[in-house]
Design a protein around this nucleic acid. Structure first.
Length: 468
DNA sequence: TGAAATGTTGGGGCG
DNA sequence: ACGCCCCAACATTTC
């Protein structure tokens, strides 16, 4: 009886194009493990929405493995402790996993390697979560990039990544026994109240991810560069949660877009390149996080440490609940609460409003998104909030302040998005849908503005001036 | 992946 | 025909 190989699933909950799984399967009969490790993640333990997704994705993964009679072992606790026990009890001679880039992961992965070595098992770490490893992309001076445009140029210059690997045709289970938790006992799904009913629009899992990619390519890619900014249309890929959990790899996405472009020529090129560069934004966030692990909690630009943030629990609450009185902002936060998602353009508007109109610390928004977004992702979340705040490496200048009325009129021109999420405004004429306070007859049931944007803008610029 | 303020230009109404 | 004014449209600067 050959000794088993351990496949430690992490944010790579897929069978296809999974280098770690492929190697583990070739190394011996498989033990597949997922570890829910809240302790190591600390304050960045998975938020509520993420847990819902994780529950469903693990269910799908277990089904996929069950076709090969391979069980998915579920364990809760610090990953190093769990691995120590599993290696000892199984006598496995190799451990395989896909690396991740959370600030605590470097240390954790080192510790796991030491544990494996001590247990007499080989420890093998693979990429695949990103298109390019954060160490692999360097400026001419050998430094990490701080600005997206040259970063993406450097990535494009490397050409297309190697083609994705197909899913394994067979997997051989280990015939020993390892005890597993029951997924239900993890209580990842909300109950009393169940706020996840609006999540039914999503299909977690590898199949759902592949379907989403195909639908996106068929329906939205040809108009992506402009369509992606329209929250009233379904023109974004909505792949972010699938990518976050590794149900699909960025290489699979890149390759599929490339073949669609090759098949279509012409007009698609600019549109497709735009999507590829969005995939590179994801790489760029991880590049920043890897080289500046303080990114989630500390302003990249030091002078922002002295920024006079306001402590305003009432305003924060109004923002979270979508009760600010600004339709496009409220629609976004209500979409988030209901569906676990917010359109990217609206994320920028909503974030700008929290930071600049309310002068609330971007970390408050970061925490709220971490809990409520199905695609909550430590690198993208931190990098994007800092980008909007103007405190980031490659940030929008602080004085770039979104006007929620103009943004609404520009990107939701018929008010369809706002009407969907703020039904109180349903009967307003288009002319005032993004500025209901100008409606002569008034609006029943919709909150008054909690701040005046023009005054708030002046206040924000003044606050910036105080930084010097 | 801004918006507002300020500057410039040119067409048309009008005396 | 001409100069003057108004102002929309566009460009540039500033925050």
């Amino acid at each position: 009886m050959p000794t088993p190989a351990v496949m430690w699933f992490r944010q790579d909950l897929r069978l296809a194009d999974n280098a770690a799984l492929k190697a583990a399967a070739e190394a011996g009969p498989l033990i597949c493990v997922y570890v829910l490790d809240d302790a190591t993640a600390g304050e960045w333990a998975w938020g509520g929405a993420s847990r819902w997704w994780l529950h469903n994705s693990l269910t799908r993964l277990a089904e996929g493995l069950a076709r090969f009679k391979v069980p998915l072992v579920l364990r809760r606790g610090p990953a190093d402790k769990v691995m120590t026990e599993i290696l000892r009890k199984s006598g496995a001679t190799s451990l395989h996993f896909t690396r991740d880039y959370a600030p605590w992961s470097g240390v954790l992965e080192q510790r796991i390697k030491a544990i494996a070595t001590e247990a007499g098992a080989g420890c093998h770490r693979y990429g695949g979560f990103l298109l390019h490893e954060p160490e692999a992309i360097r400026t001419g001076q050998g430094q990490p990039y701080k600005v997206f445009t040259p970063f993406s140029r450097a990535c494009f210059a490397l050409g297309d990544p190697r083609p994705p690997r197909p899913a394994p045709k067979t997997l051989k289970p280990w015939d020993g026994k390892i005890k597993s938790d029951r997924l239900e006992d993890w209580q990842l799904l909300p109950r009393r109240p169940d706020w996840s009913t609006g999540f039914a629009i999503w299909t977690p899992g590898e199949q759902g991810a592949r379907q989403r990619l195909e639908t996106f390519i068929a329906d939205a890619l040809s108009d992506y560069a402009e369509g992606r900014d329209r929250p009233d249309l379904e023109r974004t890929s909505r792949l972010s949660p699938h990518l976050h959990w590794g149900e699909i790899s960025p290489v699979q996405c890149w390759t599929a877009i490339r073949s669609a472009l090759a098949a279509a020529h012409g007009r698609l090129d600019r549109q497709g390149e735009k999507f590829l560069s969005e995939l590179l934004w994801r790489d760029f966030s991880y590049h920043l996080l890897h080289h500046w692990p303080d990114l989630p909690g500390t302003a990249f630009q030091e002078k922002f440490a002295a920024f006079p943030w306001r402590d305003d629990a009432k305003a924060l609450r109004a923002w979270q609940q979508g009760e600010t009185g600004y339709p496009i902002v409220d629609a976004g936060l209500r979409e988030l609460w209901s569906t676990g998602y917010m359109h990217n353009r609206v994320r920028m508007i909503a974030a700008s409003f929290l930071i600049k109109d309310l002068l609330i610390d971007w970390r408050q928004g970061e925490i709220w998104f971490w809990d409520t977004l199905l695609d909550a992702d430590i690198a993208n979340n931190a990098a994007s909030w800092q980008w909007v705040a103007g405190s980031g490496a490659d940030a929008a200048p602080y004085f770039r302040i979104f006007n929620p009325v103009l943004q609404g009129e520009k990107f939701d021109p018929h008010g369809a998005y706002v009407r969907k999420w703020c039904p109180e405004l349903r009967n307003l004429p288009n002319a005032v849908i993004h500025r209901p306070w100008d409606h002569e007859a008034g609006v029943k049931g919709y909150p008054a503005r909690i701040v005046d944007h023009a005054a708030a803008r002046d206040r924000a610029l003044l606050a910036l001036k105080s930084l010097g």
